[in-house]
Amino acid sequence: MSGATILANPSASGGQVAAVPAPPANRPRRDYVGIGLWISLAISALIWALPFVFMFLTSVKTNADVNTAPTWHLPSVWQWVNYADAVETGDLWVTGANSLVVAIIKVPIGLLLAAAAAYALARLRFRFSKLVLAVLVAGSMVPIQVGLGPLFTTMLSLDLLDTKLGLMLPYLAFGVPYQIFMLYGFFRAIPDELEESARLDGASTFRIFWQICLPLAKPALAALFILDFVATWNEYAIAATLLQSQDNWTVPLAVLSFSGQRATEYGPLNAFIIMSAVPVLIVYLLFQRYFVAGAFSGAVKG
């Protein structure tokens, strides 16, 4: 921290790196670079937030308001009923429940399978374990769309088309490999001595997995849980291919159908778009701490 006080000249305190905190407000010399930076950030942030503002204002307007006044005007009548309308016409309770069921079943199962596999690859290292890891991860990085057509015919022949199980199986297949990759690094970092001493105490392989490795990976598991919940809630391509009847739709399918068919009911349309994102927003706000710290610090290490 002493660095900041030694390097009091403005050019140095305007540096890009974390070690130099912004000068305290009562300092006589003003940090013009810092102020300029802050103003440009504020303007960019404002631009970035505009679409949300437009969405919200439109979501509480009547069609007459939308057609006669610019988007950024406040509504003449606050039309909150748009939200109720949108829930009803978009069948949000049904699609929301579908999405929730899929996410709540799929995400924990997927994490458990990924943790088990990552444990096997990282701690029970057998011949070719690295090759297995590489093949798993390579496949998960290929665009899903490569296999969409055949996935459809596969589910058709398994009679799993248009079912939740039929949706969750490919979700697991596409989600798990990346999680294995992240957890692999985590499990590798556990000191061998910890495992050795547990083994000397007579702990089985399963106990070492369940009682030593899994608890140690909690931060990574929390971050992966959020990432996977958001990804599952938002998934569109597979769901659109495999789900056919409206009763089985997940939320993204409802959004597309709503914005396609009811594009002239501007208020309810925007209300629907906003409501469809509420769960992921809640998850993000609750867990953003873990999210940034846990998920990504592992990803960028050389």
Partner: peptide
């Protein structure tokens, strides 16, 4: 964190 399909509808 928004679904791309939602972002598409917004834009």
């Amino acid at each position: 964190v928004f679904a791309s399909i939602t972002v598409a509808a917004m834009w």
